[in-house]
Amino acid sequence: MTEAAGTRRIVVEATINGEPQEFLADERDSLLEALRDRIGLMGVKEGCNNGNCGACTVILDGRLVCACLVMAAEVEGSAITTIEGIASSDGLHPLQQAFLEDAALQCGVCTPGFIVAAKALLDVNPHPAEDDVRLWLAGNLCRCTGYDKIVQAVLDAAGDGKESA
């Protein structure tokens, strides 16, 4: 790939899902491209590549971001949490369990973004009201469910009291 015109490789160091990592990225890579194509974290989904659908939502140094709107080069020294880092070795996060039990997914392609976004919500507001959930998740598009069961799953997960696991 080094032969390709106009591309330059950069080395990026970041902590991804708790593990310090060093990866080689194209200088034009977005964080989304780097996470998927360079590191292989395919749970971060591309739906629009311009920040409107939330399928690539990750937590970057405690902030919720669309990975498609961040350049890979910008994350040097940062900590990133993706959907792959939500479950622990003890099992699923309560949000993941609630999504399963409440049938809060159909095709499932938006699900990683919703779960990461919902985790960030519960981290700051462990007991949100329905309106809080709807407002917080308004940056994530789902076309299958009509949001009903997604909102319910987040409320149920919050009800467990284990939300900041």
């Binding site: 998927r36 194509d37 292989g40 974290l41 395919m42 749970g43 971060v44 989904k45 591309e46 993706t82 959907i83 792959e84 939500i86 479950a87 699923l92 993941q96 999504f99 399963l100 997914l105 499932g108 392609v109 699900t111 990683p112 779960i115």
Partner: peptide, 16 residues
């Protein structure tokens, strides 16, 4: 379900 809530499910664009 579990593969889909953990980001492990393989969609078309995930092929390498």
């Amino acid at each position: 379900g579990t593969d889909k809530v953990t980001g492990r499910a393989n969609y078309g664009a995930d092929i390498r």
